[in-house]
Write a protein that binds this DNA or RNA. Structure first.
Lengths: 356, 356
DNA sequence: TTGTACGCGTTATCAT
DNA sequence: ATGATAACGCGTACAA
């Protein structure tokens, strides 16, 4: 590969001059600048990243820690982040993590050896050593989609509990009382969303939801949604609606319903969470909670850039607004007309909530 | 960050010795080896990647060029590749590309500056300069999901044309004759799949498909599938089946059908292509062509490793077998019983084709 | 305004 | 078996 020295020789100047030209520094005669630039272009020269980051002691790279099974929601999120980071001149390096302890150690090792300029965590690593390392060496970090009480990292997220509450309250507004939940585990949001579910019952002075209305599944896949729904149906066939903790789970659940010959929403209503892109295209289209993906991504990218550049992380709030997207998967339970206490008329059909 | 020199000082040896220990070289007394290792562990030392790749003149990094709007099929594919590469000690760097010329230039620039050990192209870049550069500097390259006639890069893929033929033939076998197609553009596979579609008509001695049976859409998104199907319905309402060039397009198409009050497969049959994971969970589940994702990923990873290590790329074939996955989205056209020339009985319902 | 010299962290080579 | 030294490509302080 052609190096800065080659260019220097070709241009009849010293390497430092070439360096100045490339980095748009002052003190270069226009004439020389042009000559060097021409040669750079001709030779297709580009700086060697490794050498640069070695001497500059920074890598211009932001690491994104993300589950290796990332879903469409996360996919859209990091696409936004990546895009903005790119604009700011940062490279992006993905660090895929599974739920295994070994994978988390590998993650830590990677974080160390890469000496990244900043880290965006889109995955709640369990091993505290990771956060501890990041904190001790004061690596710029921003948490995205979850928060932490133990470490003072800025966190961009929605109020998971309130959002889940909105989803379940929506079901209540439609007259549902026996509402099931398909719940995941492991992550903070799983307890928060479950808490939101519980609170709706509480705040309305109702009995807490029965245990038989809950199916806990080991992951957030379509298949687990399918299984969870099947279990729910077995446990208590009187439920009239289901809150699935993620859209994937909800779509899997609808599949079970379809196989069982049950119609959504006529026989059973479903609401999801995340508003992944496919949720507007299922039959029926899924009523769900939308997290402001774009905004979250922009905010996260801006934060990490500020953190890297100036060490500051101001400009709250980092808790963004969620929004209920009404589509077609919710209706009144059979026999029971819609709760008169709500203002809204019929559910919006079509792609009204598509955001096009 | 603690460096090799720090460790050396702490252990009372020279940096070279530490280097030998770290890289498991010979000629180190066991006693010293243990002492150094202990200190390395205690200090949590890890090699600096930039420095290493500078002196070794390799980055241990494989670049994956991929569309920034990658779909679930590609997502599963690169997950497999990433996993295998990781096992072989390679890092992975994604290079996201859009369909713009500017983005492709940026891609080229990146490829140059990163000095990657190898490149996996999962996206058909239009600008020949990219391939030219790769070829000239004999960077190890493997194409994944498409081939090239202009450059001798090994390519892992299926026979797109034959696969599309299988999809459409399946429709024919069910008695369909007026079969529409939702087609994309830009990529090699779009012309190959369209060609497969055409050939079925030809090989059965039928008239070529009418122009009004074809809707060409500008991208492969859910939304374009929806639009394409709507257009098809307007252009010729007598079609009884549709071949969508990708599953996303198919799912979007089914959405239009749902909105129009048409039932799949009773009113209209649909077959897709790719077998993305959600295709088994839609209602109805999608009949589609499965590309052997796992195998393709493994093959691609193995190839790039061989290419990097030994410069060779042997062990064809690189053209893998596709497979028709029959689910629920195909039935006989209304009024017409299933073509008696086929051996198979009723379509498989449920998740028989799920591959669990 | 330009060039020289050094250092970043690591490994390979050669000397010991 | 171990250590000293050079080199990788670049940026920068300092000399010119």
């Amino acid at each position: 590969m052609t190096s800065i020295k080659d260019i220097a020789r070709l241009a009849g100047v010293s390497p430092s001059t070439v360096s100045r030209v490339i980095n748009d520094k002052e003190y270069v005669r226009a004439e020389i600048r042009d000559r060097v630039k021409a040669i750079v272009k001709e030779k297709g020269y580009v700086q060697n990243h490794a050498a640069r980051s070695m001497v500059l002691r920074r890598t211009f790279t932001v690491g994104i820690v993300i589950p290796d099974t990332f879903n469409m929601f996360q996919r859209q999120l990091f696409a936004t982040i990546e895009h903005h980071l790119e604009e700011q001149g940062y490279r992006t390096m993905f660090i895929f993590v599974t739920w295994s302890a070994e994978s988390e150690s590998a993650c830590l090792r990677k974080l160390k050896s890469e000496s990244l300029d900043g880290i965006i965590m889109m995955h709640e690593v369990q091993n505290p050593a990771v956060y501890k390392y990041l904190h001790e060496y004061s690596v710029p970090v921003v948490l995205c989609t979850f928060g932490s009480e133990d470490f003072p990292f800025p966190a961009v997220r929605v109020d998971e509990c309130a959002a889940a509450e909105a989803a379940v309250a929506h079901l209540m507004d439609w007259g549902h009382r026996r509402i099931g939940i398909i719940a995941g585990t492991h992550f903070r949001f799983s307890v928060q969303r479950a808490e939101g579910y519980r609170r709706v019952f509480e705040s309305r002075g109702m009995e807490p939801p029965k245990d038989s209305w809950k199916a806990t599944v080991p992951s957030y896949s379509l298949e687990e949604g399918r299984r969870g729904m099947a279990r729910l149906l077995r446990q208590d066939s009187t439920i009239t609606a289901v809150f699935a903790m993620t859209d994937e789970l909800a779509i899997g659940a609808m599949r079970t319903l379809h196989e069982a010959g049950l119609k959504v929403p006529e026989d059973l209503s479903v609401v999801g969470f995340d508003d992944i892109d496919i949720s507007a295209y299922t039959a029926p289209a899924l009523t769900t909670i939308r997290q402001p993906i774009r905004e979250m991504g922009e905010r996260t990218a801006a934060l990490i850039c500020d953190l890297i550049a100036e060490g500051k992380a101001e400009g709250s709030p980092f808790v963004l607004e969620h929004r209920l997207i009404e589509r077609e998967s919710v209706a009144s339970p059979k026999g029971a007309p819609r709760d008169s206490s709500t203002q809204d008329g019929a559910p919006r059909l079509g792609t009204g909530g598509l955001g096009l």
